[in-house]
């Protein structure tokens, strides 16, 4: 479904990721593991068109997408749920969700249905629907960011560190929701530092170090990998 082929991305002269190749198949949950600064966010920003690549190719459903603008990429079915959430802080929860469905704005009925689905998944958002997004707690903002992404009905969702800054109990709920979203048909590419939780829901994973992929394998393999355990699981 998605294929990165030797992708290199630079900030000025500095290569944040080098020769990254990875694939995501339809229906999967694939996780990118790596410490802070390893290059996960850069990978996501490049897939969604916010950053330009310096070398390589990105192919989505047999089409090259790496020269397309971000709005075209959303229209094709890839939605990026950013690490810093990128909500519209002064707009209400409902207005944020409405804009999440921007690419389907001509289809009022679908937007209404999607919104109901999001509220079913995260009932707290329904309670807070008229509150400005900026007033929500960290966990609620993350739910809203995911909800806003779902409104676009993505085929592939890029989820960048959804557990960042959340209390352990909320993290657990968050990963359950992610699994639920995947079961309902959305393919998920997840970036995480919380390897334990991420590997427990993922099919496969890649491990980043300093902008390069150093290990890859099934969740089970990564879980049993000595180095991965040492670096990210701490056992």
């Amino acid at each position: 479904m998605l294929k990165l082929d030797n992708v290199t991305v630079k900030y000025g002269k500095y290569a944040a990721i080098r020769d990254v190749s990875l694939t995501v198949e339809k229906g999967e949950i694939v996780v990118l593991l790596g410490a802070n600064g390893a290059g996960k966010t850069t990978t996501f920003r490049t897939i969604s068109g916010l950053n330009q690549l310096a070398g390589g190719k990105i192919i989505f459903e047999d089409l090259e997408i790496h020269r397309k603008s971000p709005n075209k990429i959303v229209e094709m079915g890839i939605v990026h749920c950013a690490e810093d959430r990128k909500l519209f802080p002064q707009m209400s929860v409902q207005e944020n969700l409405n804009l999440g469905g921007y690419v389907h704005r001509k289809n009022k009925q679908q937007i209404k249905n999607s919104m109901k689905e999001v509220y079913d998944l995260f009932p707290i958002l329904y309670e807070k629907r008229d509150d400005p997004a900026g007033s929500l707690s960290g966990g609620q903002q993350q739910m809203l960011a995911i909800g806003r992404a779902l409104m676009a009905k993505p085929k592939l969702m890029l989820l960048d560190e959804p557990s960042i800054g959340l209390a352990p109990l909320i993290v657990e709920q968050m990963f359950e929701s992610i699994q639920q979203i995947n079961k309902e048909g959305t393919t998920i590419l997840l970036a995480e530092q919380n390897a334990n939780a991420a590997l427990s829901i993922a099919n496969r994973g890649y491990v980043y170090e300093n902008g390069k992929i150093v290990v890859q394998g099934s969740s089970q393999e990564l879980f049993e990998n000595e180095e991965v355990r040492k670096a990210y699981i701490g056992a």
Binding site: S48, L50, S69, P70, N71, K86, F88, Y102, R105
Partner: peptide, 25 residues
Amino acid sequence: TYMGASIMAMAQNRDGASLVGINTN
């Protein structure tokens, strides 16, 4: 209107607007 909402969205978070599929240009 969606056009008006996209103006407000872009003012509040330009990247966020791109990521919901708004043509920011």
